[in-house]
């Protein structure tokens, strides 16, 4: 009886230490995954994860970056839900016609709350620095200009 209790406590400790290890290993998401957190956190929604890989299988870069007008900069596009439902930005396809419609909130708003705007695994984010040992979810944006608008 008594040493069962001890073993349970030991197991609990091991569990907690494991959780810490897991968090410390950081993110292993795809190259080019973009997190957009311009307004999400303040609106009480999860930030958006945009998977470039999924979209480039189906569309060439030109469709979003020339026809629809997305700037080549994470956080550099002033995307709001109003614009989306009016057919701008994501709403140009996510309208129930070309792709699934906007009422599937959780399919885009899927990052842990507080995740900063970033291009996952971008050159600057991957540089080996003291900063990069922190988990991505709590890290300040590694891209110095991530929050500013696109430069011309």
């Amino acid at each position: 009886m008594w040493h069962r209790k001890v073993r349970t406590v030991a197991l609990c400790a091991a569990f907690v230490s494991l959780l810490t290890t897991l968090v410390a290993t950081g993110a292993h998401a795809e190259y080019g995954d973009v997190v957009i957190n311009n307004y999400s956190d303040t609106a009480g929604m999860r930030p958006v994860v945009f998977p470039h890989w999924f979209h480039r299988v189906r569309f060439r870069c030109k469709v979003c970056h020339a026809d629809i007008g997305f700037q080549f900069k994470a956080g550099g596009n002033d995307i709001t839900m109003l614009k989306i439902i009016d057919g701008e930005f994501c709403g140009a396809c996510h309208n129930g016609d070309i792709a699934w419609p906007v009422e599937n909130c959780a399919l885009c708003h899927s990052a842990p709350p507080g995740t900063p705007t970033q291009v996952h695994e971008s050159t600057l984010q991957k540089l080996v620095s003291p900063d990069s040992s922190e988990p991505v979810s709590t890290k300040k944006p590694a891209e110095p200009a991530a929050a500013t608008t696109s430069e011309k």
Partner: peptide, 24 residues
Amino acid sequence: RNLPPAEDGIHDPTSEGTYLLQSP
């Protein structure tokens, strides 16, 4: 590499939407 969304650290595993996304 190429982990499913729920394990990739950038999607919230507590969100139900995460489990509907395709695994790379």
